[in-house]
Amino acid sequence: MALRFLMAGLLGGICYLDRTAAFQVMLHRPLIAGSIAGALFGNFAAGAVAGAVIELLYIARLPVGASIPPDDTGAAIFAGAGAATAVPAGAPIDYAVVTALLLLSVLCAEAGKVADRFVRRINCRIAQVTIAAVDRGDIAAVDHGLLAGVTLFGAVGVALAVGFSGLGVLAGRWLPGMFTTGERTGFAQLFPLLPLLGAASVLSCSRSERSAVFFYIAMAIAFGVSLAWNWGLR
C-alpha cells in the first residue's frame, strides 16, 4: 500500500505540475488523473469512469488571469482511487458508490483551489526575492526563483495527490457499507444527472444559437440511433 501512495504522489504530482507550472499538455485532465489513480489502486476501468464524468463538469471554468478554477485534477484522483477501492477489478461498476464519490469529490475540488491560491501567494515572495537578487547582479537568481516556484507547485501537488488518494481509499472502503448498492437503486439514480451536467458545461462554453441547435440535434440523433440499434438486436 505504501508503494501505491508513493506512486500516487509521484504521478499525481506530475499531473499537478502540468496544471499550471509546466507544459500544459493536458496530463492534468481528470480523465487521465482519474485513470491513473484507478490503475494504482487496482481498477483502471473504474477510475476512468469517474475521471470521464469529472472531465467535463468544470470545463467551462477557464483559468484566466488570477481567476482559479476548481481543482478537477484532485477531484479525479479522489474519485478514481475511491472507485478502484470500492469496485473489484473486472466486477460491474457500482454506480451508487461511484455517484456518492463523484459528489463528495466537490470538496476536494474546492480544497485544491484553496491550496493553489496559497502556492501563488508564496510565489509572490519568491518573485520578490528573485527581483532583489537580480538588482544585486545575481543573474542565476532567475533560474533559482523559477526552480523554487516549480518545486513549490510540485511539492504541494504531491501532497494533494497523496492526501486525496488517501481520502479516496478511505471513502471507497467505507461507502459500500453505507449505501444501497446496485445498478439502479439509491444514489445510482442520481448518476445520469452528472454526465448531463458535464454536457451542459460543454454547451455553456459556446454562446452561439448554432451550437445549441447542433447540441440538441446531436443528442436526439445519438439517442435515437442507440435506441433503434438496441431494439434491433433484441
Binding site: P192, A199, A222
Partner: peptide, 9 residues
Amino acid sequence: GGIYGAMAV
C-alpha cells in the same frame, strides 16, 4: 456534448 448527453439518458 449532445452525444455525451444522450449517453447519460
